[in-house]
């Protein structure tokens, strides 16, 4: 069970207080009406789903109720960082693979 640092509460809390909400940084198309079916379908359903570094959206649902982002290794389950909505990750697959060879 994960130990998650909420960037808003600024403390570690147990996973039970949180709920994952899938891949982070999926932006809604600015002009849905002019999206092709393929573009719209990709936005709705197609995901990176990596084995390794994954940026994902979590909700501190039994806590401060804020959505925030986690960079997590989906193989080891190690959480590398958490950051607020609207912020960018400092750790990405490319920065990590340079250091450890983990993809």
């Amino acid at each position: 069970m994960f130990n998650i640092h909420c960037p808003y509460c600024e403390e570690y809390r147990s996973e039970e207080e949180f709920h994952p909400s899938g891949e982070a940084h999926i932006e809604r198309p600015k002009d849905p009406a002019n999206c092709t079916e393929e573009e719209w379908g990709n936005y709705l359903f197609f995901r990176k789903n990596p084995r390794g570094i994954h940026h994902e959206l979590w909700h501190h649902s039994i806590g401060c109720r804020k959505f925030f982002n986690i960079t997590r290794n989906t193989q080891t389950y190690e959480i590398l960082e958490t950051y607020k909505s609207g912020e960018k990750p400092t750790i990405t697959a490319s920065t990590v693979s340079k250091k450890t060879g983990v993809k």
Binding site: M1, E15, E16, H19, G22, N49, H54, E56, T74, Y77
Partner: peptide, 12 residues
């Protein structure tokens, strides 16, 4: 409900 390749999940 999170993505995971670790062949294990959470205790709760």
């Amino acid at each position: 409900s999170y993505n995971g390749y670790g062949q294990r999940g959470s205790y709760n």
